[in-house]
């Protein structure tokens, strides 16, 4: 049952991701990305990580993709039917290869490291809000805080970019 769900959700995620990459219409691509996010949330639920699943939906599918759609709608991006030039295609291929390599590296690192909890032995509290919160504020406090500093930098940058300059404002 669980395996069937996994295959269904995984297939859905992959198909939606493929549609997202190949589709030339921005809104469709964005909607496919939302579908991918939702399928990934389903996969997290299968892994008993309910909190991550909910956060995936709230943050990625809910907030970030709405901003994507907002920008697409605001700029009214037209459908582009142009073909990629030869060199651009080459760069795209290189990019895909690099991303694939990184992915393989990541998987192998995770596989080779010892402290990965096997699925069957997951503790009863695994994935609960309490457990994740404790981990975040004890063991992974430094990465957590560094990530928040990164976000703060992004916020400051966005404010500076969006803010009108003082000498422009009086015109």
């Amino acid at each position: 049952m669980q395996l069937l769900m996994f295959y269904l959700l995984g297939l859905g995620a992959v198909v939606a991701a493929l549609i997202m990459v190949t589709n030339k219409r921005p809104v469709r691509a964005a909607m496919s990305l939302i579908a991918t996010m939702s399928f990934l949330a389903g996969l997290y639920v299968l892994l008993d990580a309910h909190l991550i699943a909910a956060l995936q939906l709230i943050v990625y599918a809910g907030a970030i993709m709405v901003l994507f759609l907002f920008v697409i709608m605001l700029l009214n991006i037209e459908e582009k039917e142009g073909r990629l030039a030869g060199s651009a295609l080459l760069w795209q291929m290189i990019a895909i290869a690099v991303v694939g390599l990184v992915f393989v590296l990541m998987v192998s690192v995770v596989k080779l490291s010892d402290n990965v909890v096997p699925l069957g032995e997951a503790a009863a509290l695994f994935g609960t809000t309490r457990a994740v919160g404790k981990m975040l504020f004890t063991e992974y406090l430094l990465p957590f805080e560094i990530a928040s500093v990164l976000l703060l930098a992004a916020i400051v940058g966005a404010v500076i970019l969006a803010k009108r300059r003082i000498d422009d404002s009086d015109q």
Binding site: I34, A54, I58, G62, L69
Partner: peptide, 25 residues
């Protein structure tokens, strides 16, 4: 009786935004 209860509500309401946005677009 989900452990993430209220977050599940937020997750679903954030999905409802898409209905509105898509309807508009």
């Amino acid at each position: 009786d989900l452990d993430v209860g209220i977050l599940f509500v937020f997750a679903l309401t954030s999905l409802a935004t898409f209905g509105v946005v898509l309807a508009g677009w």
